[in-house]
Write a protein that binds this DNA or RNA. Structure first.
Lengths: 125, 125
DNA sequence: TATTTTATTGCGAATATGTTGCAATAATAC
DNA sequence: GTATTATTGCAACATATTCGCAATAAAATA
C-alpha cells in the first residue's frame, strides 16, 4: 500500500508541524484553510500514526489528540513514551519532555503508554 | 444535596469493592444481578467520584473505567495518583501500586493524572 | 404512622466521537 | 496518454455518555 502525496495530507501535516500542541480532529478541521471531510481527517491521521510520523493521545475527555513525533530538543533521538499535559484553562494538550519511567510488577510487559497530566499550564498560571 | 442509600448504589459499590479491576459501565451492568438502567449507573458512578469513593480512568479506547479508591496494601494512606495497567489480552484495567511522579516544567500545576500503560499482564504473559 | 420533601431512577432522546462501505476522484507508474 | 489503485467525500453506522422529564421512593417531619 504505497502512499500518495495529496493536498490534504500536506495541509494536515503542516498544521501539526507548526503547532506546539496536540490537535484533535475538530481542532484540525477548524484551523485548516481548506475544507476537509471529517472521515478523511481521521484516515489521514491514522495513516500518519501507522507510519510513525504522528502519535495519538487519548485525553480524559475521551477524545483523540494527535502530535508530531519528533519535537524534542533532540530531534535525532528516538521518541519514547512521554507525559502529556492538558491545560484546563486554555484547553490544549502538549507533549512534555518527560519520559514515562515506570517499574511495573514482574510478569507485566508494557507495549504502550498513555499518560496525561491535567491542570494549569505556564501560560495560564 | 444529601445522599440517599439505595439498592442500586449499594450493588454498584459492592461490585467495585469486590473487583480487583476497574470496571466500565457495561461491565458493571453485565456483572450485576439486578437490572439497572445505563444512565443510572453513570450517575451513580459520577456521584461516587464526586464523593471521592471512586476514581475514574479513561483508557486508550476512550471509555471510562471506575475503581475503588482505597485498594492499596495501606488503606489508611491517602490515595495519590498512580499508574494503571490495561491488558490487551484479557482486556481489563487495574490499578498499579506505582505512584505517578513527574516533574513538570516551572509554572505548570498538576491537578490530576490519567496514566494508563498498555500491554500484557502477569496472568496473560 | 401519615405526610412532605426532594434525591434517585427509568425511559427516551439527544449529543459527540470515531469508523466503514461505496462510488467518484486523482496521484503515480507504465 | 492510459491504467492502476490510493485517496477522498458522503452518508450511514456504531458506541459511549449525557440530559430532560415524569415517576418513584428514601429520609425528614409532623
Amino acid at each position: 500500500m504505497n502512499r500518495r502525496n495529496t493536498p490534504t495530507k500536506e495541509a494536515v501535516l503542516n498544521l501539526l508541524m507548526n503547532s506546539r500542541k496536540a490537535l484533535s480532529q475538530d481542532a484540525i478541521e477548524r484551523q485548516l484553510d481548506i475544507e476537509i471531510n471529517r472521515a478523511t481527517i481521521y484516515r489521514v491521521l491514522n495513516r500518519f500514526c501507522e507510519d510513525g510520523i504522528v502519535h495519538k493521545i487519548v485525553a480524559e475527555d475521551g477524545k483523540q489528540y494527535f502530535a508530531i513525533c519528533k519535537k524534542c530538543e533532540n530531534p535525532q533521538e528516538v521518541i519514547q513514551h512521554h507525559f502529556h499535559f492538558r491545560c484546563l484553562s486554555c484547553d490544549t494538550i502538549e507533549c512534555l519532555q518527560v519520559p514515562v519511567e515506570c517499574s511495573v510488577p514482574n510478569g507485566y510487559e508494557v507495549q504502550n503508554a498513555n499518560c496525561v497530566l491535567t491542570g494549569t499550564c505556564n501560560d495560564c498560571s
